[in-house]
Amino acid sequence: MKVLLVYAHPEPKSLNGSLKDFAVKRLQGAGHVVQVSDLYAMQWKASLDAHDSIERQASERFYPSRESKHAFENGLQSADIVREQEKLMWADAVILQFPLWWFSMPAILKGWVERVYAYGLAYGVGEHSDARWGERYGEGKFAGKRAMLVVTTGGWESHYSARGINGPMDDVLFPIQHGVLYYPGFDVLPPFVVYRTSRIDEANYAAVRDALGKRLDDLWTTQPIPFRQQNGGAYAIPELTLRDDLAPERVGFAAHVE
C-alpha cells in the first residue's frame, strides 16, 4: 500500500520527530511505500492568496473559491500545490501528524489543507439537487482512501475526557476528522493520541512507540469512525439536518456518528 504522511512539527529532535521517523520505518518494514510531506522542512507557504494561481482571472477582487476552481480546472495552480495534490491522489492512506496547538492543528498544516484542497478536488464536486447535495461526507475524490490523525498534546488524558475541562478529545478533533477528512471522502480511523508529552521519557517512550506501531500495523483492518453519510438517507436535503427519528436524544457532534 501507499502511505502519505503529512508532518507538522518544527523540531526534528522532538517527540513528534522521533515518532515520525519510527512510523516511516515501521510502514516501510511492512512493505508499504511511504512519502513524507515535512511541512516545516519544506518551508511550506501557509497562506492561501492570489499567488496560488499562475494566472488569475480578470478580476480586481480576489475570490478564493472562484480562483481555486479556475486554477484547478485550467492547470494554473502553483507547482507546490500540484505536487501535494499528486501525493494525495497517489496515496491509499493519509496520516496527518501534528502537536495539538490551541485546540487545533498548527497553522502550517491548516494552510496545507486550505491550499491543497482545491475547488473541484476536495470540494465543489458532484450534483446538487433535491436528492443529493454534492459528493461529500462519505463521498468525493478521496473515497476509498483511509486517513488517521497522530496527535500529541501536553494535556492530561483526563483533561480531554467526557467531563474534562478541555472537552472530549473526539469533540476537539471533530472539525478535522469529520470536516477536513470525512468531508472529501476519506474513511477516518480513530486517532492515535499521545498525552502529557512533557512526561514522555526514555523509559515510557517505548510503550508509546509500540502502541503507535500496533496502530500502523492495523491501518488497513481498523474499523473507521462510523460517521453518517450525507447522501445515504440520514439527512434531509437540501436542509442537511439529521432526520428527527435518528438519535433524537443527541445533539451536536455526537449526533453525526452512528
Rank of each mutant, 00 (worst) to 15 (best):
K13S: 08
R196L: 05
E127C: 00
A79F: 14
L181W: 05
H32V: 04
W220S: 10
I165D: 14
S59V: 09
G17R: 10
V172K: 04
K141V: 13
W112V: 02
M1K: 15
E127T: 04
L149K: 05
D80T: 09
A8Y: 04
L189M: 02
A131F: 07
D170S: 14
G252R: 13
I54K: 10
S59T: 14
G126D: 06
H9L: 12
G29K: 13
V193G: 04
W112I: 06
Y160T: 00
H159A: 10
N166K: 07
D170R: 13
G75H: 12
G29I: 14
N231K: 12
E202Y: 08
H256M: 07
M148C: 06
T197N: 15
S18A: 11
P106R: 05
R228S: 04
G179N: 13
L189W: 01
D217I: 07
G120I: 09
V33Y: 09
L19A: 05
A207F: 11
D80C: 08
G144R: 14
L246M: 12
P184H: 06
A30Y: 05
P224L: 06
W44E: 06
T222W: 01
T153V: 10
K110P: 00
H9W: 11
V180M: 11
A93F: 01
P226E: 11
A107D: 07
K145W: 01
F174H: 15
L100S: 05
Q77V: 03
A91L: 08
V33P: 00
L5Y: 03
T221Y: 06
M169S: 06
E249H: 14
R61W: 02
F192Q: 04
L39E: 02
F227K: 03
A147D: 04
P64N: 11
V180G: 01
D130N: 12
R250M: 00
S47M: 13
A50M: 14
E258A: 13
N74D: 06
I95S: 05
N74M: 04
E157M: 08
V151A: 02
S59W: 09
Y195N: 02
P106L: 12
E55M: 10
I237N: 01
G164F: 12
W112Q: 04
G144Y: 14
